[in-house]
Structure formats: structure tokens, C-alpha cells
Amino acid sequence: MRVTVNLYATFRSGRFEQELRDFPLGTMLREVVAAVGIAESEIGMSLVNGCHAPMERALRDGDSIYLFPLLGGG
């Protein structure tokens, strides 16, 4: 399956802003986070298709993933 991974703020340094990535069907969000080289403890907000998702979320083809470090407010 193919998912879109979006990275923000400091997660972009040395990585990317947005990439399409292939994973086996049923891959968990946790495995995607590991695959892009981010420690789970650094994650401030993880969204799948715009909704909060736990690391155990089993992903589906076409999902959009958004990963943010701990940030603040406006």
C-alpha cells in the first residue's frame, strides 16, 4: 500500500516535507515513524487523515500521515 508522509517543523531537517512511501498492508503508524527515523518520544502530534491516531493504528492504502514535534501555540 502507499501512504503520504508529511513532516513538519524540525522533523524536516535532513529529511523531507512530503513523500509517498510504500509499506506492506496493515503497517502500523509506529513502523512508519521508525522508518523515517523519528523517535516516538519526539512526536508531539500524529494525525492520520487529519485525525489524531495512536502509534498502534493500522494504516490503509491512501492514508495521509502528519507528524509534528512538540510545539506550542498561537
Binding site: N6, Y8, A9, T10, M45, L47, G50, Y66, F68, P69, L70, L71, G72, G73, G74
Partner: peptide, 20 residues
Amino acid sequence: ATGEGLPTFGTAEMVNIVNA
């Protein structure tokens, strides 16, 4: 947030967060 996020990106860091 106060040690890193706000000093680095300012409050405009919220644009991408709120958009997502």
C-alpha cells in the same frame, strides 16, 4: 513549546498544525 517550538517558528507554527 516554550523552550523550542515558539522561539524557533513563532506562533505561525500553528499554520501547518491547524491546517493538518
